[in-house]
Design a protein around this nucleic acid. Structure first.
Lengths: 193, 193
DNA sequence: AAACTGACTATTTTACAAATCTGGTCATTT
DNA sequence: AAATGACCAGATTTGTAAAATAGTCAGTTT
């Protein structure tokens, strides 16, 4: 149990500390203390603080992938799946303690590693959407287009509708968000009569 | 010429200084010096630094309104006008020295007044779009929808296509931007065959 | 000998007081 | 009556000493 167990202790302690205090305010001494491990031991598994952070980040991204996979039903239409995936992902993102803490740290101190961490998470979401868009194109469910461009736009649109807009007016209801998302992205605004 | 002239001198000096140094690094002493005026004189026209800043900001916003008006041809279709207006406005925004400086100041120092100034400019753009969207709805050119919501989305989409996306991949050409903008917003992605 | 440890170091970050600067005022000048 | 700049209170910057931290490694434990 020796090596594996210690490694897990370190990872668990790091996850806890990064979530509680953010990147900057997490010290290697503290992680070692929480993990009940000598500081040097951490460096036998991870070559530095950033790599330890990366490990935690990757497990969060993996968790997100599982959440997204759970929402996809291959027999349902693309836009239904898309909506559910985005909803679940952004819900997760706005509730996960590590992500909340990193967002705050980025806002408050502009810590580079917090910024980069959040970018990686966003990149993972976009990469996930990209695959789904490709799938939808090949199934002829949506028109041919660049999956990268469309994925970025989809995420931005969803964030705009769910969060951004609230700065300017009362939040939209879930139903309104759903219908605007489809109106804009799927059906188009152009009047057809 | 006394009063009017001095007021103009102050405004001109302030515009120059804010554009050159940003909000924070512009001092009232400096404005007075550039304007060839005693510092006290500034306070006979503007009650404080923020109000002087506001004056400059309002003239920029007025300038933007004129630029936008110039792009609108009532005999052309809504989406053509929209595209031209957004293009001209964002071009102006990315080239105007004051706006560039304020963006930099916001990024680098997080100055509240720089942030608020940029928000006002963005608000003005959205308000302008709102009026156009209302007009298009009443002319039955686009489907009925909340003009505020749609305006915000339009601006975000355009910014995403023109700027945001460049962080992740090579910039789109003007033609590509135009066609993606229409594909997403006007026609919709849903496959109709 | 292999795994683990924490004292140690070079560097970064913080704390804090002194010095400087700045927005705004107002008694004096024009 | 309009304009001015010396002045002031409060904010900001600067210099520097003290504290903290990431990472190492000689020594300890298993």
């Amino acid at each position: 149990m020796a090596v594996v167990d210690r490694r897990q202790q370190v990872i668990k302690a790091a996850a806890k500390s990064f979530s509680l205090f953010g990147y900057k305010a997490t010290t290697m001494d503290q992680v070692a203390k929480i993990a009940n491990v000598g500081k040097g031991t951490i460096y036998t598994f991870f070559s530095n603080k950033e790599q330890l952070f990366d490990e935690i980040l990757h497990s969060v991204i993996l968790e997100m992938k599982n959440i997204a996979d759970r929402e996809i039903k291959r027999d349902k239409p693309f836009f239904d799946n898309l909506q559910r995936v985005l909803d679940a992902l952004l819900d997760f993102r706005s509730e996960h303690e590590l992500i909340i803490k990193l967002s705050q740290e980025k806002r408050e101190f502009g810590t580079l590693q917090a910024q980069e961490g959040l970018d990686k998470i966003e990149g993972a979401i976009i990469a996930y959407l990209e695959r789904e868009v490709e799938h939808a194109i090949s199934k002829n469910e949506i028109k041919p287009c660049d999956p990268k461009v469309i994925s970025v736009v989809m995420l931005k649109l969803y964030v705009t509708l769910t969060a951004e807009l609230n700065k300017l007016q009362a939040p939209l209801s879930k139903e309104e968000i759903k219908s605007y998302f489809r109106l804009i992205l799927a059906e188009g605004l152009a009047q057809t009569t």
